[in-house]
Write a protein that binds this DNA or RNA. Structure first.
Lengths: 246, 246
DNA sequence: AAGTGGTCTAGACCACTCT
DNA sequence: GAGTGGTCTAGACCACTTA
């Protein structure tokens, strides 16, 4: 039931309860979900609060509503990997693999023009670069070249860089990551990449460039990641948007 | 101003107005956005309606709210390509290119096991397959192998298949596309692909598999698309999600 | 006609940030 | 203390679906 003395908002508590019910498998695909009226009475809360909790489940694709008909369970998948920004460590952990990293280098450097543009550094300003081999269950999966602004880099230099960068930034530095722009391409492995990933040269590589931004709009990381094509598939779930004004 | 006699919801109208103001450039990055109080008075509507309109702008990353501080303009980008499900034609059009398609083949066929699984066809049931070369400004960009359930395929066979498939499904067949699961990999071009895209063999290819679903949860399309790596980059914007319950 | 979700109101109290 | 956004209530009317 709901705890009204908790600092956690009621709609948040209700969302967690409903999510658990869906994921437990008690409700099967296509089953009718409790109506708003039912939820209002069962938890003794107002309709707007119910709607706020249900809205998130609908938005995340677990429920499907039809006006005048009802609310229905879309699917009972445990992993509903929507298009969320996750770091390598988080992504591997969610797939049930154990992530790790081997630090190749970490230093302040003069950014190339792409890095400078993406991180919006002043002319002549240095950035922090670290190169890491990312592993899953001990197997090399990707080569990662991360760049951060100078001030953030100075803090990072005093940390263990073989773990999750995003946890470090959020939990230790209090940076609120908010969104990222990604570009994904297919390329052939070069000498440097193939050596670090333990693969042949001239094999296909999934190449991702990502710029991550904090809640205030400031870029906090620009990363180039080269994934072994034989070990990694990029998966994403997309939502259709209304197409009225286009 | 708002039109209360319109069938369009007030929060929708307000969203459109505010979006226009942001995109017009009148508000610059970092500028303070009108407070909820101001918007309530200016448009003579209640706070919840204001919040509903603003919430979408926040969710789409155009605004940034900070409790006790205010609402601020994140950026004045015209194209905020969030992670939305778009077809090839829509995507190219949004990049300012003219999309087209050359039909290679279109037929009913026995699905392979992947296609049958993704489209959830009954054993022995046929599916509709069409193979198309997708062009942008007359240049071949991708080779597309689309599969649809039998009933949908029968309708498609009577249509012009060299245009946008999603428009056809939504506008002509009344199918509400809702979401899709995608997998993106890097592979090497095979003989069939390189011939149709006019490229050398053994060059890298961005390979995407996508299953698209309607609002009722039914799969309506499974597509394999092979993109020329030298002409196409997959771009996406991701939002960070709260990481409390994981 | 009854039940559902979609929209909207006019209040209320709280947590947070700034001055 | 004043102003902001965050949460919550108890109603209301409407549009749509099903029977």
């Amino acid at each position: 039931m709901l705890d009204r003395s908790s600092p956690v908002p009621l709609y948040h508590q209700l969302h967690a309860i409903l999510l658990k019910e869906i994921q437990s498998g008690a409700l099967k695909q296509g089953d009718a979900f409790p109506t708003e009226q039912e939820l209002m009475e069962r938890y003794a809360i107002s309709r707007m609060t119910v709607r706020q909790a249900v809205a998130r489940l609908v938005h995340d694709g677990l429920l499907h509503r039809q006006q005048g008909h009802g609310t229905f369970v879309r699917c009972n998948v445990i992993e509903q990997e929507l298009s969320t920004l996750t770091g390598f460590s988080e992504e591997m952990a969610s797939r049930g693999l154990t992530p790790s990293a081997k630090l190749v280098s970490a230093q302040m450097m003069q950014p190339d023009s792409t890095v400078a543009t993406q991180l919006r550094t002043a002319p002549g300003e240095m950035v922090f670069q670290m190169i890491r081999v990312r592993l899953a269950d001990g197997e090399p999966i990707a080569l990662d070249l991360s760049h951060c602004p100078r001030d953030l880099g100075e803090k990072l230099q005093q940390e263990n860089l073989e773990g999750a960068l995003y946890s470090l930034m959020e939990d230790k530095f209090g940076i609120k990551l908010d969104w990222a722009d990604q570009a994904i391409q297919a390329i052939l492995a070069d000498e440097f990449t193939s050596r670090h990933l333990g693969i042949n040269k001239r094999v296909p590589i999934l190449f991702m460039e990502r710029t991550a931004y904090a809640a205030d709009g400031r870029p906090v990381e620009f990363t180039r990641t080269l994934y072994r094509a034989d070990r990694y598939v990029y998966r994403i779930r997309l939502k259709r948007k209304p197409r009225s004004s286009s």
